[in-house]
Design a binder for these strands. Structure first.
Lengths: 242, 242
DNA sequence: TTCAAAACATGATTTGCATCATGTTTTATA
DNA sequence: TATAAAACATGATGCAAATCATGTTTTGAA
């Protein structure tokens, strides 16, 4: 829906500067030799706004982990309308589904919201790891299960709730998953336009603008894209009712 | 939304009458001793229309496989409106997500559409199996990945398409996944009322009735709940556009 | 600091669908 | 095969949200 100039793949992947490999559960499961092997297979790549990590329809080559930044998963329909399925945060896995098995193609695109850093490894290395380590496999099963539950919860919300409730639910979700507590309220760490929000809750930009104006009047939120602050998450929760 | 008289759990689970344990991929992965152990842990239970296999909010105790019949996964919102997430067919797994891990509760209900037969095993035995057999774990990962993709595809459809397109997409999906080819067209094997369909596409019974009337006039479908026949799946696909 | 592009805002109009209401047909079961 | 309940049908009306249109404000880059 919004024009994106793809800066081409100027992002060469390099070996991961081992060091604080962070709070990524999957990576902390392996120990000893298995862990070494894993780290050796992982490479890091950086992307900026307007680029694509991959596009809908591309062949699946890698398993990915978000290291820094936020990545959005997007699908679009034949007449060009877009729908954002999920915001991936640091520690999130993607393309961990073995649907990537038999030469399948990406069912959606992955785009960074701002600058991001992605860890990735080849499908082969990924499956080798899963075969070798039951703990890693169980971790992935757990992760996929949670993602499935989320997606089904979102199905329910899309099917049953009004636009303002869906938007409230989105703000609550983003606020709790990634918000930064400040004295004025909870600030969302990524740039998020009304259009972005519309794509996430299945409505139009105008509708989101109107609803956000009401929310602002009711002092539920404040600010715009660059600095969005949730002022009363409890009342938003009640509105979303869930 | 629709009143259900729960006949209580008159269904005692028994050992699985080993024999033609069918076309269930997961069960055919294991061999030798592992397979014996698995079969020993599996029990079979039967349910009829109006019963619940489990309810939203119940503690998760078992891992399940559909053996015969159709099971629907349902969620409802605070004011009692229902939404059907998925029709499970023979071979489908459920509660395979290890979200069932830490004493979590069922995020939705499971109800049979007519008579069904369910295979199940305790959470513990299930996780033992996954730990012991990388092949089984990979199979589950593959299955969960497919389910996640389906759920996300449905998100997109709910977010972007009109009611008639969503309904067309539903008919195409059910037709291809479980339809039986007859000379008049493709027959759906389960009883499916307009209300059932409404719950699956996020709309009202009246709207589904109206759209189905149009579809019938255009000779895209014919019949009602007990005997629903898809007469022109190709044109339905085009309508759903996806 | 300027200036164009992007984001936000708001009104007018239309429309898809929900809701309510009432009637007919089909289905299951006594 | 009689009969109540469930499913299907159709009209009238209202409303949430899409669409179209036309501003204003903010932002980021020259």
């Amino acid at each position: 829906m919004s024009k994106q100039h793809n800066k081409s793949s100027s992002n060469r992947a390099g070996a991961v500067p081992h060091g604080q490999l962070a709070q990524i559960p999957l990576l902390n499961i392996l120990t000893g030799q298995d862990r070494q092997r894993l780290l050796h297979e992982l490479t890091e790549a950086r992307y900026g706004k307007g680029e694509f990590i991959f596009r809908e329809g591309d062949p699946t080559e890698y398993f990915h982990i978000v290291k820094e930044g936020t990545v959005k998963c997007v699908k679009s329909n034949p007449d060009g309308k877009e729908c954002t399925l999920k915001m991936l945060m640091p520690g999130d896995l993607f393309c961990c589904d073995a649907a990537a098995f038999d030469g399948a193609r990406h069912p959606g695109s992955a785009q960074p919201m701002g600058d991001v850093s992605i860890l990735r490894m080849s499908k082969k290395a990924y499956f080798d790891m899963l075969r070798r380590s039951p703990d890693a496999a169980l971790e992935v099963i757990k992760y996929l299960g949670n993602r499935l539950n989320e997606a089904q919860e979102k199905n329910k919300v899309l099917a049953l709730e009004r636009a303002d409730q869906r938007l409230a639910a989105l703000l609550v979700d983003l606020g709790t998953r990634s918000g930064i507590k400040e004295d004025q309220g909870i600030r969302l760490p990524m740039r998020l336009t009304r259009e972005d929000m519309a794509n996430m809750v299945g409505t139009t930009t105008e509708t989101v603008i109107r609803i956000m104006s009401r929310f602002k009047q009711d002092d539920l939120v404040t600010g715009t894209a660059n600095r969005l602050i949730i002022r009363d998450i409890e009342r938003l929760k009640k509105l979303a009712s869930t």
